[in-house]
Amino acid sequence: MNNDLIQQINSLQNHLNIQLASRFEHKIDNQLTAKQVLLLELIRTGVTSTKDLAAQLNITTSAVSQILNKLEAKEYITRSINKENRREIILNLGVKGNRYFEEVQMLEDEINHSVYGQLPVEDLEHLVRILTRLNVIVKGE
């Protein structure tokens, strides 16, 4: 099993899933909306300013604030004031946000082992090419 290829596949697959979730969020029946999941993913990867989150999701800062309020109320995120710059709010994953990504990671680990682990390197390489092409197709539509 080639971990570098699997990481590349997961990255491409996550990118595709984010795009598809954003595009088809109205069809998703989940405790979290697609935009909430996207926002949590961005916070997890270090995007913490409301302005940057809004730019990444192509929505208004007001809409981001509303989503953050809901996520904070449900304990998916925490907000604190930066002691060095009191005008800056620091966003972090809360208890439920961390648990959500732990569960996602456990599922990914299971999939990696039980599915990707059974494929030869050539198939994994081909899957990388396919997912790259799918990302281009989805992005272009």
Results as ranks from 00 to 15, higher is better:
residue 21 A to R: 13
residue 13 Q to T: 15
residue 93 L to E: 02
residue 101 F to N: 03
residue 25 E to I: 02
residue 42 L to S: 10
residue 128 V to W: 08
residue 131 L to Q: 09
residue 65 S to Q: 02
residue 108 E to F: 13
residue 131 L to C: 08
residue 104 V to E: 09
residue 50 T to V: 15
residue 76 Y to F: 13
residue 12 L to F: 14
residue 24 F to I: 10
residue 35 K to P: 05
residue 95 V to H: 03
residue 33 T to Y: 00
residue 11 S to H: 12
residue 51 K to I: 08
residue 94 G to P: 03
residue 124 L to F: 09
residue 96 K to G: 02
residue 12 L to W: 12
residue 85 N to S: 03
residue 96 K to I: 05
residue 80 S to K: 15
residue 45 T to R: 10
residue 61 T to K: 07
residue 71 L to E: 06
residue 15 H to D: 15
residue 100 Y to C: 04
residue 62 S to C: 07
residue 18 I to F: 11
residue 98 N to V: 00
residue 78 T to P: 00
residue 15 H to F: 15
residue 108 E to K: 15
residue 103 E to F: 10
residue 123 D to L: 15
residue 128 V to R: 09
residue 59 I to F: 00
residue 141 E to M: 05
residue 40 L to V: 06
residue 84 E to K: 00
residue 6 I to M: 10
residue 98 N to L: 02
residue 32 L to C: 04
residue 35 K to S: 10
residue 110 E to H: 15
residue 37 V to A: 04
residue 94 G to W: 07
residue 54 A to L: 07
residue 49 S to W: 09
residue 57 L to K: 11
residue 49 S to M: 13
residue 60 T to V: 03
residue 29 D to S: 01
residue 26 H to W: 04
residue 66 Q to G: 00
residue 110 E to V: 13
residue 57 L to C: 10
residue 101 F to T: 03
residue 84 E to C: 03
residue 5 L to V: 08
